[in-house]
Design a protein around this nucleic acid. Structure first.
Length: 567
RNA sequence: CGGGGAGUGGCGCAGUCUGGUAGCGCACUCGGCUGGGGGCCGAGCGGUCGCAGGUUCAAAUCCUGUCUCCCCGACCA
């Protein structure tokens, strides 16, 4: 129940000059949010209503699977973070109180929840257990961007499961996964569940819920029956036509030609017939030469996971000292371990000769150099997915993610229980995050048209936007007032535009704000005894008799097909 | 962290090169007209030109430093 003349919904004719993403522009323009600093946003009343609606959906689905709500502080002692090993993360905000005690601003709540569970849970009889809260997170992001999409402070629903073993974890994980699917469907978000990297969370397995949209900062590899973040995606490469094999590598002079393009051009072979050699320094292992096909890109996350260790690119001096001249290095004759990407197959490649201004052709793996084979390249559109489908790559927003943590936190923080045999065991944990703000942004990105936002009913700030085109005191305004009262009496959520503004401004604002049903009460319709209802999503228009306009509007609303799973 | 761009009234911008009265559109206030797609007329309010220091008779403008914001990349539970 809101009269727009008294509401704080500052709409803008133009988007801020520095906004790029659709959701960023529209959320600012529609008066949902305003910026306070880089990655720091205020939710204005209409925006906050939307955010709270998403939270309400999340709450219902969490409670539906027996996950209990609680609330943990954002400001926390540093101690548990030191124990878990995450105190070293750059993104973690660190501070001190007046006594000099180290504190942190939590970026997630694994440490806090594990701290509590470690103290209260003692027996297998206390398990399984699922807890969640909806709380602010703080992250010192290197680069906040795109409005509400990547911020330094944001609200997240994070849930945690506690089980006695892996089977229990699998059950909890499935329950959470199902809840996430329902949450996103109900919020009208199109999504894919994809395999993902465990990242800084640590743990044994993870899935992400990705909402495809242009502003997405992740890329997902999709094919029928296959979906994975490109960070971890694996597929069969497109074949490349190799030159005829030689009985032994042959040295060719390539003066000054150091890039794949230059060498493939000069030797008239496709880029994929080259081997790119990338020297990296692996933690505790020294320099290793990683090979990928000339037309492929090394995927650092896949390499890190395959190595089971951190690594960095070797510096120019290190390369010169350990291998050969930068730009002309290759695996033949290299005196360091070689990792060959699995997509390098066949017997006649071109690679650096480890001497200035020279390459080798006719190089054949195994025959000419030894290697360990790993899948470390980034998949590309057109590759063949494990199921046989053709890979497409699409940008997407990560709206949620779920992790099998195992004992990643229960070990360092001492969260254990006694089993039936009186034996102490580590609690097996899972963690499940979802970002309401990203759901809001994704919903806008996926559904907006050139006039503005198109909300699904479940998260619209108001269900009905009643627009009076008349001025206060006119009979047409009184008719609108009566409809407003009737809608309110019927329990509908109505935003009533009773501002003394021109019709163009009001109608444009209504489309910008995107409530599912707009009702226009103006002189033209009222002269024939009707008001005009239009569905924001479909554009369908209906004339409703004034006398029972409210009732008819509610009936219409119930049938509005808004594209969400909740209609 | 690397590259690029920008800080001038609430928003969008001009003015900066070539130093000399701070300006435009929108918004806002008041009055009037208008009333189905951001309308019109008139009168107004509102700015330490991001900050600090320097050069100069004089700095939005030149110099030095610094802060902030945006975009691309790196990074990103």
């Amino acid at each position: 129940m809101s009269r727009q003349s008294q509401a704080f919904i500052p709409t803008l004719k133009d988007a801020p000059a520095d906004a790029e993403a659709i959701s960023h522009k529209l959320m600012v323009r529609a008066g949902l949010i305003r910026q306070m600093g880089a990655g720091l946003w205020t939710y204005l009343p209409a925006g906050w209503r939307v955010e709270r609606k998403v939270e309400a959906v999340i709450r219902e689905e969490m409670e539906g699977i027996g996950c209990q709500e609680m609330l943990m502080p954002v400001l926390q002692p540093a101690e548990p973070w030191k124990k878990s090993g995450r105190y070293a993360i750059d993104e973690l905000f660190k501070l001190e109180d007046r006594k000099g005690s180290p504190l942190v601003l939590a970026m997630t709540h694994e440490e806090a929840i594990t701290y509590h569970v470690a103290r209260e849970v003692r027996s297998y009889r206390d398990l399984p257990l699922m807890l969640f809260h909806i709380q602010t997170k703080e992250r010192d992001e290197p680069r906040p961007r795109a409005g509400v999409l990547r911020t330094r402070e944001f609200t997240m629903k994070d849930a945690y499961s506690f089980d006695r073993d892996e089977e229990g974890l699998a059950r909890s994980y499935d329950l959470q996964s199902g809840a996430y699917e329902r949450i996103l469907d109900r919020c009208g978000v199109r999504w894919y569940k994809v395999e993902s990297d465990v990242g800084m969370m640590g743990g044994s397995g993870a899935d992400e819920f990705m909402a495809p949209c242009p502003a997405g900062e992740n890329e997902v590899a999709l094919a029928p029956g296959y979906a994975a973040n490109v960070e971890v995606a694996s597929a069969r490469a497109q074949p490349v036509e190799l030159p005829a094999p030689l009985s032994a590598p042959e040295r060719v002079s390539t003066p000054g030609l150091t890039t794949v393009e230059e060498v493939s051009g000069a030797l008239e072979v496709p880029a994929g017939a080259l081997i790119k050699a990338l020297p990296v320094i692996v933690e505790d292992r020294g320099m290793v030469l990683v090979l990928v096909r000339g037309d492929h890109r090394l995927n650092e996350i896949k390499l890190r996971n395959a190595l089971g260790a951190e690594f960095r690119q070797a510096g120019a001096e290190e390369i010169a000292a350990g291998l050969g001249p930068v730009g002309f290095i290759g695996p033949v004759g290299a005196k360091i371990p070689v990792i060959k990407d699995a997509a390098i197959v066949g017997g006649s490649f071109v690679c650096g000769a480890n001497e200035p201004d020279a390459h080798l052709r006719g190089v054949q793996p195994s025959r000419d150099f030894e290697f360990e084979e790993l899948d470390v390249r980034t998949v590309e559109a057109g590759d063949t997915a494990p199921g046989g489908g053709t890979i497409e790559i699409e940008p997407a927003i990560e709206v949620g993610n779920i992790f099998k943590l195992g004992s990643r936190y229960s070990d360092p923080l001492g969260a254990t229980f006694l089993d039936e045999n009186g034996k102490e065991q580590a609690i097996v944990m899972g963690s499940y995050g979802i970002g309401p703000a990203r759901i809001v942004a994704a919903s806008i990105e996926q559904r907006a048209d050139d006039r503005g936002i198109v909300w699904p009913r479940a998260i619209a700030p108001w269900q009905v936007h009643l627009v009076s085109l008349a001025k206060a005191g006119e009979p047409e305004r009184e008719a609108a007032d009566r409809i407003y009262d009737a809608l309110g009496a019927a329990g509908a959520e109505v935003l009533y535009d009773d501002r003394d503004a021109g019709p163009g401004e009001k109608l444009t604002d209504a489309e910008l704000l995107g409530c599912p049903l707009r009702i226009v009460a103006g002189r033209r319709g009222l002269a024939e005894g009707v008001v005009e209802a239009s569905e924001r999503a479909s554009g369908a228009e209906h004339k409703l008799p004034v006398e029972d306009a409210a009732e008819r509007a509610l009936a219409l609303l119930a049938g509005v097909d808004d594209g969400s799973g909740d209609a």
